[in-house]
């Protein structure tokens, strides 16, 4: 187990290496000379040359990449061009709403999608199954910002049930925090729910045709016991895998959702950075999101041993 963990951790190095090269090239290839930007309007050619030297911009690509990578490994993601603040500090300031939104969406998804998938598989071929599958197709087709605005119009503006936009930190108390999280998590979760419901149904259908399920039924176990205790447990591995892979979908959605619901998280930070062409921030956010994605999927691989004791590493 330990050896496997080490091997998997080492395997993430080339993946993160590719991400690092991509992200660095982004700054390297970006139009405009950072030295000119920093120098300002009054800088002479000599000033700019000096700034270039100080920043190391006159050195070869590989040397620059090495220096940059060393800084990143130590947690230094560079300085934002626009605000002149360290990117790592800006990211830390904005990370809470994004984590809150992601976690609450994950919770909503697991609580809604898995029962839906189980139900559809149990009632396979009936109108319930067809309803769930229809929902899955619709969920895939409605982009998160369309769902988001539809929910704002219907639930916030017409029915006045929930706040329209904004974010209240969880440090102000859970019940102040909750109302602002409901719509964003539902809107963001829609695609994810569709995906997980679909894979749950597929995985459950496969398990429900097994002999041991028939045995469980025939020895008189209750329906819920068979479905959740026996079948779902054995159908769990593909579901958890898809939860991990779908995280990429979720992260893409976070950027948009935060814009729709005016949540001051990493997504907003990214969008503002694009509009200002603040490359160090774009780099930093991509690095953080990709690292999170890779690490979470690594963790998911490790959980397989708990979900299915037959899997040994």
């Amino acid at each position: 187990m330990f050896a496997y963990l080490v091997r998997r951790l080492l395997a993430t190095i080339p993946v993160m290496g590719v991400v690092a090269i991509f992200v660095f090239s982004l700054l390297y290839l970006s139009p405009g000379d950072p030295a000119v930007v920093i120098g300002g309007d009054t800088a002479t050619l000599e000033d700019i040359a000096k700034i270039r030297e100080k920043l190391g911009l006159d050195r070869p690509f590989l040397v620059q990449f090495g220096t940059w990578l060393w800084n990143v490994v130590r947690g230094d993601l560079g300085i934002s061009i626009f605000t002149n603040l360290p990117v790592s500090k800006l990211i830390l300031q904005r990370v809470e709403p994004t984590i809150a939104l992601t976690v609450s969406t994950l919770l909503v998804t697991v609580c809604v999608a898995i029962p839906m998938g189980v139900l559809a598989a149990w009632k396979a071929g009936t109108w319930i199954d067809r309803l769930v599958m229809a929902f899955a197709v619709l969920g895939f087709s409605f982009p998160v910002f369309v769902t988001g605005y539809l929910m704002i119009f219907s639930l916030s503006i017409w029915l006045d049930l929930l706040p329209v936009q904004g974010y209240v930190s969880i440090t102000n108390g859970f019940f102040a925090f909750l109302p602002n999280m409901v719509l964003p998590s539902l809107a963001l979760g829609m695609v994810y729910i569709a995906l997980i419901a679909r894979i749950t149904r597929a995985s459950m259908l496969e398990v429900l045709s097994q002999d041991y399920i028939r045995t469980a039924h025939s020895k008189g176990l209750s329906k819920p016991n068979v479905l959740f205790g026996h079948a779902l447990k054995n159908a769990a591995v593909p579901i958890v895998t898809t939860l991990g892979i779908g995280l990429a979908l979720l992260i893409s959605g976070v950027v948009v959702t935060e814009s729709v619901f005016a949540i001051p998280g990493l997504g907003r930070l990214t969008v503002d950075a694009i509009l200002r062409r603040d490359y160090p921030i774009i780099q930093g956010v991509i690095l953080v999101f990709s690292a999170a994605y890779v690490l979470i999927n690594l963790m998911i691989d490790v959980t397989y041993t708990f979900l299915d004791p037959r899997i040994r590493y």
């Binding site: 993946v15 694009i274 890779v294």
Partner: peptide, 22 residues
Amino acid sequence: MRIMDGMMSIPAVLLAIALMAL
């Protein structure tokens, strides 16, 4: 495939955004 794995670990929308920023 290592390169593809690396690219796939960057969420598609972010990857496209980054390229558009260039």
